[in-house]
Design a protein around this nucleic acid. Sequence first.
RNA 1: UGGGUCGUCGCCAAGCGGUAAGGCACGGGGUUUUGAUCUCCGCAUACCAAGGUUCGAAUCCUUGCGACCCAGCCA
Length: 554
Amino acid sequence: MSTNETQLPANFIRQIIADDRASNKHNGKVATRFPPEPNGYLHIGHAKSICLNFGTALENNGTCNLRFDDTNPEKESVEFMESIQRDVQWLGFTWDALYHASDYFEQLYEYAIQLIEQGQAYVDSLSAEQIRTYRGTLTEPGKESPDRNRSIAENLELFKRMRAGEFADGEYVLRAKIDMTSPNINMRDPAIYRIRRVHHHRTGEAWCIYPMYDYTHCISDAIEGITHSLCTLEFEDHRPLYDWVLEQLQTPCHPQQIEFARLQLEYTIVSKRKLNQLVTENHVSGWDDPRMPTLAGLRRAGFTPKAIRDFCERIGMTKQNSWIEMGVLEYCIREDLNENALRAMAVLQPLRVIITNYPDNQIESLEISNHPQRPELGKRIVPFAKVILIEQDDFAEIPPKKYKRLILGGEVRLRGSYVIKCNEVIKDAEGNISELHCTYDLDTLGKNPEGRKVRGVIHWVSEQHAHAAEVRLYSRLFSVPQPDNEANFLNALSRDSLEVLADCRVEASLSNANIDHRYQFERTGYFCLDAIDSINGKLVFNRTVTLRDGWVKD
RNA sequence: UGGGUCGUCGCCAAGCGGUAAGGCACGGGGUUUUGAUCUCCGCAUACCAAGGUUCGAAUCCUUGCGACCCAGCCA
């Protein structure tokens, strides 16, 4: 992957790291980590963090670990762990080491013993509800638990018995002893261990107490020798706690937590809980539904890793809460696909055209370039015959202003082929157009007709040579820019985010379409084969994104 | 009305006391056998507001205003 052939844009994190390296902080080393909780699929918001963490390591000749933050077994699973690894690799990154917070359970436990011995943690018997009331509010200080001054010996004893499974879930909790009057609520004696008798997907039944995020994360970072612990803004208030734990424990390494704004993309949601709800309530076909902002969904829709990486770079890195317009993501994918997608012709809503002056059984093999700007991508053979299919939209009996397609008595260029003229419109009993009778100009193959200008160019396929295909036209899942702000985000779901065209006709060369290839169906958009439903020779194409359309209809 | 953070073009975003980069979007011209691509041009006398310091302020100071986050035994 090329990360530095061009000048990378400045941002505050790059600046901090450049300064740290200049001052030889951490001996000039840079070590980051991407720490997802395996409780859902990765989405476009994670991509920002992945690119940041892995990108930072790459740019600074450092390392980046993948670490699963698996401290809450109730919500986590192996399926999610596997999908996360798949998606990180697909995005184009390789981790230096793969760890799990659960790898550190024993060390975390020992550190907790140390905190207790130092008089900085205690076992509390208050219930969850009591702890909440004791915590105080945003404007009033909390008050101390009656258990706060339990003796060290008793705390040690109780904590060991917690681990031994002698108590019921919720009966006790281990808390850090910090300051119940702190204006920062996170410092009001936060819980650091809770009793939870649940099966853990990696440690099985070995533990019935599990450490909490704030306590686990900083120690895990320290154990791995992370230098810069990059996380999102909502953890800003947790930084004092992150630092407190590491200071008490005198860990050999004290990473610097730096917070950045999480990605907010218009017309999508990136709340794992809500994405989960879309899946479980069948509003979409799964985590990999092409309308989902998950990496699995984007992949199935035809997005490329390169486009997503480019997007993550373009949106910048700051501490400002901001909303990125869909146009930016669309630009990134179009830019990549315009350069790399093979061109092909597909007629989504066919209209039959008979070329009356074309010899009945003649077939011509036309050679058409796979890419107008890149001849090295080769050419393909496209058969031409007397009966062809064009897009219904490309003919109009009553054309709008500035219409440059086919009209009765008018001419149009068939892409890579001849100029035809429409002489007659045939209608069925209901008055619907059933076919067009046209004539072709033999002298227009590969050259412009003399004495007149043909403005329009339309795509086509030969009826007898074309293959049937299903084409799925996806568009944004939500109808409002910020569905999260709705009382119920489900009400913002757009009803027509998927249009299935079951009976399209694609040019013959597409019969051996490859799952790894992207295609531009000329004049309609970028498409790729659906990885799941294109089986047994059935062709199912997903629309990744439309082509830009500069036609201002008035 | 506690604590933390943030206010630069429609949307992002550089800028670090020397006189407002860039991208997306948008508008206009050119090329084009994709109404695509490509290309050229345009697009903040102004940086949340008001004071102040300075020869000089988006940058420093003061006071306001606005937005976001925090009261899980979630991460």
